[in-house]
Design a binder for these strands. Structure first.
Length: 573
DNA sequence: TTCCCTGGCGCG
DNA sequence: AAAGCGCGCCAGGGAA
């Protein structure tokens, strides 16, 4: 058995006629051996503890969810579905022909919430199921290795693939552990704002009161406040000639109906989005378990599906409560996107302004703009492509002070307007323009193009320019956050278990007695930690931030300071 | 009845 | 009614 004592770098898992088969590969991708696995959980646990390979599988939740339920974690994986999407489109990949031809790997994220499919579902959804046979999985893995080996900036692209895959592990673990959620505290908040929970289908007391005040002020006792056209007509009848019923436009008008209407909208939103229905559906056994979708946003940010995990209103954070004897470590990065822009562009002037805690204050200190509020709105305008209003007016001042950073986003916008593609620091590439977009541009260039053709083409070009302008910054910030998350995950997993800590059974067997990630939101994490481990967890978050910066930007002199709070609840104040 | 679109609003 | 990016979810309303 000459080959079998080589340490495997990769272990590829897939289905065969015999069941689940694992293939061990060495660093060069050569097969060491393969075996059929009867008890996958036990085998993974054993291999993980001795060899710590990178697990290669078609889709992380498909394999990892059941491992986590059994209390088994793995350190590293290569998620073929996520990696396929990156490599297929990346401008850094020299030859993506084979990957583009492998359409079966274009499948969307598996639906981890799926219950037993109904007859109707079977009827209409033919599976965009991912290939899972060992043969297909191995073939795709080799395609991806070949693409990576031939890529430009292959170190960065490898880092992106590793970070994306680590993110998939984190997403599965976040859902398995859940965010500690105090249903009684949530109920108390709802009762305080809305009144007691109404009978099913009923309207809470405070919502009804606000509605009555609005109807009285409008002199229209029957008007529906939930129907935008009806409400708008009722407002017009009393002289409020708004174009829409959005809260910021309504607040410009002076009429006795406005204040109660804004209150009504606030309460109605709370009731429908995060009321008792949401609580009953999404919080069980003291945990909120949302579905995270790594890579779900075109820029590489995560999306969520179900539960609205990434839209939790700040006002509900008081319901996020650590278990007894545990605490929450809430850490977020200050001004992540402008810092990322400074580092990407190598703009030392902007980096100088960012050094210390508050980048916007640094811009004011340099005399570029007068107030922090101006600096913030100008910086957002520069990254989003504002051309008018306060924001557009203030951008030129930034352009004078930070020409390198502004040139980077301006160039990204120009490329997008011209129909080109742009790429993040690590190699995630924007999608090309749609056929309709190209057709509109071509049409505008024809001799008989109308004014309308030209106007539309110009508008679509600028729209796309703002998209690519923002893509490079938002996408690179997402990469920074993935690197941060991946490194932090490793640091927390390496902390010693706290013997006296409650085993926190509600977080599942994979996380007992040790700090673990509980929430992630673009530039923020919440760690659930035994009280004795809170400081170590906070340090891990800060250290991981510096590691992420070094991984993406090398020695460029810019820090990524964290705001860290340690408390029993996630409420900021 | 179901499906899709829109307006509106929550998050970064 | 946003100006200025990226999302998901809900309710209403009209089309199918």
């Amino acid at each position: 058995m000459a080959g079998t004592d080589r340490t495997p770098t990769w272990v590829v898992v897939g289905r065969t006629a015999d069941g689940t088969t694992a293939v061990r590969l060495d660093d060069a991708g050569a097969e060491i051996d393969r075996r059929t696995i009867a008890d996958l959980t036990a085998w993974v646990a054993e291999v993980e503890s001795t060899a710590a390979p990178r697990w290669v599988w078609n889709d992380t939740p498909t394999w990892y969810d059941s491992l986590l339920v059994a209390g088994v974690r793995v350190a590293r994986c290569h998620d073929l579905r996520l990696s396929h999407a990156i490599l297929r489109d990346s401008a850094s990949v020299t030859d993506a022909t084979a990957l583009r031809a492998a359409h079966a790997w274009d499948a969307a994220a598996s639906d981890v919430t799926d219950v037993a499919p109904t007859l109707f579902d079977l009827d209409k959804t033919p599976g965009s199921a991912l290939p899972d046979s060992l043969e297909d999985v191995l073939a795709e893995f080799h395609r991806q290795r070949t693409a990576l080996d031939g890529a430009q900036d292959r170190g960065r692209l490898r880092l992106l693939i590793a970070a994306e895959s680590a993110g998939a592990l984190v997403a599965a673990e976040l859902r398995a552990a859940g965010l500690p959620w105090d249903a009684a505290a949530h109920d108390a908040l709802l009762t305080e704002m809305l009144g007691p929970q109404p009978a099913p289908g009923g309207v809470p007391r405070e919502l009804e009161r606000a509605a009555t005040r609005v109807r009285d002020a409008l002199g229209d006792p029957g008007v529906s406040l939930d129907s935008q056209p009806k409400l708008l007509r009722a407002l017009h009848r009393v002289g409020v000639l708004a174009q829409s019923t959005s809260k910021w436009e309504l607040s410009e008008y002076d009429h006795p109906a406005i204040a109660p209407l804004l209150e009504y909208k606030r309460l109605a939103r709370l009731m429908s989005a995060n009321g008792w229905g949401w609580l009953g559906e999404w919080v069980h056994d003291g945990r909120f378990r949302p579905v995270y979708v790594p890579g779900g946003v075109v820029t590489g940010r995560w999306a969520s599906s179900g539960g609205g995990a990434l839209q939790l209103p700040r006002q509900l954070r008081d319901a996020v409560r650590a278990d007894p004897g545990w605490v929450l470590v809430v850490a977020d990065v200050a001004q992540l996107e402008p810092r990322v822009l400074a580092a990407m562009a190598g703009d030392t002037a902007l980096a100088d302004a960012a050094r210390g805690r508050d980048l916007y204050a640094g811009i004011v200190d340099r005399g570029t703009l007068q107030t922090r509020a101006e600096a913030k709105i100008a910086m957002l305008g520069a990254m989003y492509g504002a051309t008018t209003g306060d924001s557009g007016r203030l951008v030129p001042a930034l352009r004078r002070s930070f020409p390198r950073a502004m040139a980077l986003v301006d160039e990204a916008a120009r490329i997008g307007e011209d129909g080109g593609i742009v790429t993040t620091r690590l190699g995630r590439t924007s999608p090309p323009p749609s056929p309709q977009w190209r057709a509109a541009q071509a049409r505008a260039g024809e001799p008989d193009a109308t004014e309308a053709d030209e106007t539309r083409a110009r508008r679509w070009a600028r729209d796309r320019g703002r998209f690519t302008r923002n893509f490079v910054v938002q996408g690179t910030a997402a990469e920074w956050a993935l690197a941060w998350l991946a490194d932090l995950r490793g640091r927390l997993a390496a902390l010693p278990p706290v013997p006296e800590a409650d085993a926190a059974p509600r977080s599942g067997p994979a996380f007992g007695r040790r700090a673990h990630l509980a929430f992630f939101l673009h530039d923020e994490v919440i760690i659930h930690a035994p009280a004795a481990q809170a400081d170590a967890a906070a340090r891990a978050a800060a250290d991981a931030a510096q590691t992420a910066a070094r991984l993406l930007f090398g020695a460029f002199p810019l820090d990524f300071p964290l705001d860290v709070r340690i408390a029993a609840t996630a409420q900021k104040d």
